[in-house]
Design a protein around this nucleic acid. Structure first.
Lengths: 169, 169
DNA sequence: CTCGGATTTCAGAAACTTCTGAATACTCAG
DNA sequence: CTGAGTATTCAGAAGTTTCTGAAATCCGAG
């Protein structure tokens, strides 16, 4: 988009941190364009791209250059949906957070909730529409589609878990 | 949520239209909560729940009680992503629109674009991170996950198309 | 070609979401 | 138990998205 020229790889200690930050921000942008709150997306991206094993709220505040309040709210949201977890750090007053182990499968599963919501509405639509108009058949197809997807997803996730376990792990 | 009591079914011509509208609005809400523009979501929902085979912009404007401009913009967006199509209505000055035949598969495929974007960013992330920090392994797992999903989706869609063709059709 | 209904465009208004900053509430070390 | 460092909350500011209303444009019928 803006600065397309590749830096000759092999450069020793160049602005690698900048590139990392920029890539993280791009990820955050994509996530927020698809329904995730902006600050939550930035925090999640920062947690993914962090070189440290865990991050404190203070570190996130500094990395993202935002207020402590914004970070606090985003963390509450991310932990509540299971993407981030609080790591017990003995003898520290600060809370340490990291990406949950199965974050990607979780993020995907959240989309299943959308699919379930769509299915519910399709079924409800079929119920309340007349069998004489044109709405009913559309809703039946919508229902069939989402039923199909709901049926396929568990096996899909399971195959992923297996492949993952088989691989390095 | 609000008015939970079921109307005794069998009621002849009661506020079925209201119930239809309300259900459509719920669908629109769900769609807009996951990234679709609000008016586009409302138009799409209206097209799904319409008892007519096709709708004109004027009908949509009235059904949704919004300005013609808003409907025009939403239709432009929805046709451009292939969810709505313009139906040639000979000898009519009005443009007629309807839900595309394969709208659901299309809507799903649009999500694939998100998945592809995630995969690109994961790969980029793996490239630019050191193999000594903690970011690289996270990004590798992210990459593996989205690669897996990208690999599975085509077969998934195909199975749906087949089942659909097999069924009523 | 001309008329008139229909659609598109766009500047500004309205509504909503998100962030900041500061006060409040925790919590662990000593 | 107390104090210092952290985290949470929340009112208001800032920013962004979305819609309206009206003017301009388009297009088919006659």
């Amino acid at each position: 988009m803006m600065d397309t020229h590749r830096r000759p790889r092999g450069g020793t200690g160049l602005p690698a941190a900048d590139e990392r930050r920029e890539t993280a921000e791009q990820l955050a942008l994509t996530l927020s364009e698809h329904g995730m709150q902006r600050m939550a997306a930035r925090v999640l991206a920062a947690a993914i791209f962090a070189e440290q094993p865990t991050l404190t709220q203070g570190e996130l505040t500094e990395e993202l250059a935002v207020s402590t309040g914004a970070v606090s709210g985003a963390i509450t949201m991310l932990t509540s949906v299971g993407l981030l977890e609080r790591v017990p750090a003995a003898g520290s007053r600060r809370d340490h957070y990291r990406l949950r182990d199965d974050a990607w499968a979780r993020l995907f599963s959240r989309q299943n909730e959308v699919v379930e919501a769509m299915l519910r509405m399709a079924r409800h639509g079929v119920e309340i529409t007349s069998d004489e108009g044109h709405a009913r058949p559309r809703l039946e197809e919508m229902r069939d589609f989402y039923e199909f997807m709901i049926g396929e997803f568990p096996a899909l996730i399971e195959r992923w878990q297996q492949q993952r376990a088989a691989k390095g792990r």
